[in-house]
Amino acid sequence: MEFFFEQLINGLAVGGIYALIALGYTMVYGVMRLINFAHGDLFTIGSYLGMTILATWAVAEYLGPFAGILLLITMVMFLVGIIGVILERVAYRPVRQADRLSAVVSALGASIFFSNLVMLIWGPRFRVYPDDILPRITLNILGLDVPLLRILVLLTSLSLMGILYFFVQKTKTGTAIRAVAIDHGASRLMGINVNRIISLVFLIGPALGGAAGVMIGLYYGQVNFTMGWSYGLKAFIAAVLGGIGNIPGAMLGGLLLGVIEALGAAFISTAWKDGIAFIVLILILIFRPTGLLGERVADKV
């Protein structure tokens, strides 16, 4: 039973990270109906940027571990957000009116571009994240030994999700984002600057992905230029699981997928760990294509 709860917390921590990446997919899909294949690579860039900042500026030494990591995550979020805005401007805006397939291929091209860029800058091998930043404490919660890092990762991702949820549901700009997701033309008539909202979404989504990148680096202690692909795909599955385009859905889907994967690896088979996510995806698409929280949308004729 203890083993079960340990795996559950492990799954929740990884699931929180999946959820952060999934939010980027789902928000972009919501406003543009585009699968941003480059999102996983933006996540990788965030991870590597975090590593470089940690190594060169030693933010954690001046500010102490907690404030230092917070500043680090903020910086990485800002930088990756900027890259996301540029990406949308260069690769996605010109193809918005074209065929859907063009946008997909453009996104794949951007993904190849970014992953090779990371490889050229930081090298093709695994890089080790500095692991002496956070004190290695194990907390005892209800008789369970839980590493502090795991709790922090879960708390950070939950609070980022909370902030995003508040922003999208309660502020005027958030309302504009939701309006654009429903209908571009009508939002424009209501005085919303659609291009600016899309840019904003490409600032927020990749920023969350960047934060997730830093957390993956801290959590697993190593990063590789190809990891954006596997995490991106799993996060995308999480987004579909919750209902693509649906923000609470991505959060739920991410946490759920993390737990399913951790428990599946622990109780079914470790070798099939990566397969579990895909099998979940196939099942959900066959039986409930709109996802857990998605609404049924009628096709436009």
């Binding site: 260069v90 690769a91 010109p94 193809v95 074209a98 065929d99 063009s102 946008a103 291929v105 453009s106 794949l108 091209g109 951007a110 993904s111 190849i112 571009f113 970014f114 090779n116 860029l117 490889m119 050229l120």
Partner: peptide, 21 residues
Amino acid sequence: AGARMLVFGAAMVAMMVFRPQ
């Protein structure tokens, strides 16, 4: 070696922007 895939990705984007068909 490394840079060719970088160019390849950029070319894919450029192609879709300028000649999507």
